[in-house]
Write a protein that binds this DNA or RNA. Structure first.
Lengths: 356, 356
DNA sequence: GTGAAAGCGCTAACAT
DNA sequence: ATGTTAGCGCTTTCAC
């Protein structure tokens, strides 16, 4: 406002450039050097300017409406106060709950979160990883089940290694197979506990709704459930395992097929809640009363699991805490060393959907 | 691998700096100039290098594991391929669905999305806006109801104005009062339609569960509902309006209070589905059968609304489309002109929760 | 304590 | 078609 803009002796600035106020503008307005201005706006630790200069610069900054350019700071400092977050599907309550934990923790650290949703496409996972890598985020979080896709997993690991060699930190919420710190849910154990609890409730005939065949999380839960059943003296007939999409509709469809094939299954375990909710819908449409004719259980304890009718028996996970834990992993990451693994266990929550 | 690193004649690089491969490294490795290397890695339109050079550079880049530094590009180009997204609560299905639409559309444009979740704190909204502004994103999307908080709204508008003056684009999903392009839900109309439909179903005694008193969205829905009732010859008793948190638990709590005060309300309208779901839970605990003793309706049609029991009557919004629309707004934003408004209407979906 | 100036990695004029 | 080089906005030595 008080300075003439045209006096610049520099080359004309490119047309595409935004006309925003720079630190240099602030410095001039305050009558100090660029260095001093920098020291006050970012509160340098080593050198602290005189109180009066601090005031002059601060005033100039607000008067001019100065907003620091994070890209320039990132490039000058070598690190960016951003963390990348890759999830399978942000619209899925499982992931959005974890994302909530991540953003909450990030906020406390003054970090911004850049989000990518892969929709389950393994290629996109790698693509996003390299796109995020270009932002030089201080850390990248990978949230989602590993897959039995050696090629994709291989590329992912390479990209992650490269990122870490450049000084980036990384952590995952999945299975501990990526060579990075990971928060791992004890899926098999949780499912086994559930199986035992179900048998204890008196259920004898089981069916399982699993997700895509190559999803590690789904496989682990199925294996755990099967093991738990066996330990309790029951068993899962091979033909009573049905794969489907890892979504509500996938669960609904899978339930339809399974119940058509094996109409008198007494208890259905869906490897996650959204599938379980879909199964409930299918069961009802097929004329089953839940839980009288058919008991249904899920896994995760997403918020809506308690609001279905009847409320869904499941294995509770503190999803937001999982997100926070992953974030903490990258914050307190040591220089090197073997990747750490934090196991989180799920608690069986018996609700009316399996009451007998 | 093939080059010695120590030969650098420059000043020692700062210790904090990541040791990543730069474009200059690639250029040297390929035996070309920096400019040429730049032209091939980003596929400059005007000048395209000879095929053999392209090959040499590309090879060198992969051999060295080069990853462009987005911050440096942003600063050199003047624009950043990032869009900022501010939502009230990423764990809430309403917002995560919209976020899914935003990220999907962003992906198609090769844009990354930086997410901020305010948890309904008006101050945080402004704080995040200025934090995002520092990233110099090509656009910022604001998703969430406006509030009757003049001071906060004022600061928000100022910050937005500054952002736009610097060349940033902005759009909102809320009420069109921010002076920027906005996707606005016809809340009053949707609620009015719902009210009429409910009266047509034979309901005569109503109660309303609203959100925080200063939330515009909640206020609009209440006003619309009240108007619709009147138009249909019914009315809402003043004492039958209960405020509460805009969440499941808020709805549950509000329903408890309202039903205790006016036990024989026949039909409850919760201003959003999550509150409606909470209300259902409360009603059940208080011994009401839904819908026989008490009908309940919500608004939004979040995914789980169809899976409650009985399924929830509501006003359907295509949330993902709303997110895409907001994103499109900023993509096709004209230089200036009056802010555009895209109104989206909700469709009443009658489900068993209000069957009479 | 303050300022001058050398970068940070990259793009885009501007030559050649 | 290439290469040179001047920035982009900021941080941080390094002198004073």
């Amino acid at each position: 406002m008080s300075q003439e803009q045209a006096e610049s002796g520099r080359r004309a600035r490119p047309a595409r450039s935004k006309s925003s106020v720079t630190l240099l503008d602030v410095a001039r307005e305050a009558g100090v050097s660029l260095a001093t201005a920098s020291r006050v706006v970012n509160g340098s630790v080593s050198r602290r300017p005189a109180p009066e200069l601090i005031e002059k610069v601060t005033e100039a900054a607000v008067r001019l409406g100065y907003s620091a350019n994070a890209s320039a700071q990132a490039i000058a400092r070598g690190v960016n106060s951003v963390v990348g977050l890759i999830v399978s599907d942000i619209a899925d309550p499982y992931f959005s709950s974890i994302a909530a934990g991540v953003t909450a923790e990030a906020e406390e650290q003054g970090l911004l979160v850049t989000l990518a949703s892969t929709k389950g496409r393994p290629n996109r996972e790698v693509d996003y990883l390299s796109a995020l890598r270009r932002q030089r985020p201080m850390a990248i979080l990978l949230v989602g089940s590993r897959r039995a896709d050696p090629a994709a997993e291989q590329r992912l690991s390479q990209e992650l290694r490269a990122f870490r060699e450049d000084g980036g930190r990384a952590a995952a919420v999945s299975q501990p197979t990526l060579g990075i710190d990971t928060v791992a849910v004890r899926n098999a154990e949780g499912a086994a506990d559930l199986a035992r609890a179900l048998v204890a409730q008196g259920h004898t005939s089981f069916g399982v709704l699993s997700g895509p065949a190559d999803l590690q999380t789904a496989a682990d839960r199925v294996a755990g459930f099967r093991g738990g059943l066996r330990a309790a003296g029951a068993r899962l007939a091979a033909k009573n395992l049905q794969h489907g999409g890892f979504t509500r509709d996938g669960g609904k469809q899978a339930a339809r097929e399974l119940l058509t094939r094996s109409p008198d299954i007494g208890c259905l375990f869906a490897v996650n809640d959204v599938m379980g909710i879909g199964a409930m819908s299918a069961a009802r449409e097929l004329g089953y009363r839940v839980p009288e004719d058919l008991a249904i259980a899920g896994f995760d304890d997403i918020p809506s699991a308690a609001d279905t009718f009847p409320p869904l028996t499941t294995v509770r996970l503190d999803l937001e805490a999982v997100g926070r834990d992953a974030m903490r992993f990258v914050l307190e990451q040591p220089g090197a060393g073997t990747p750490r693994v934090k196991y989180v266990t799920g608690d069986v929550v018996l609700r009316p959907s399996t009451t007998r």
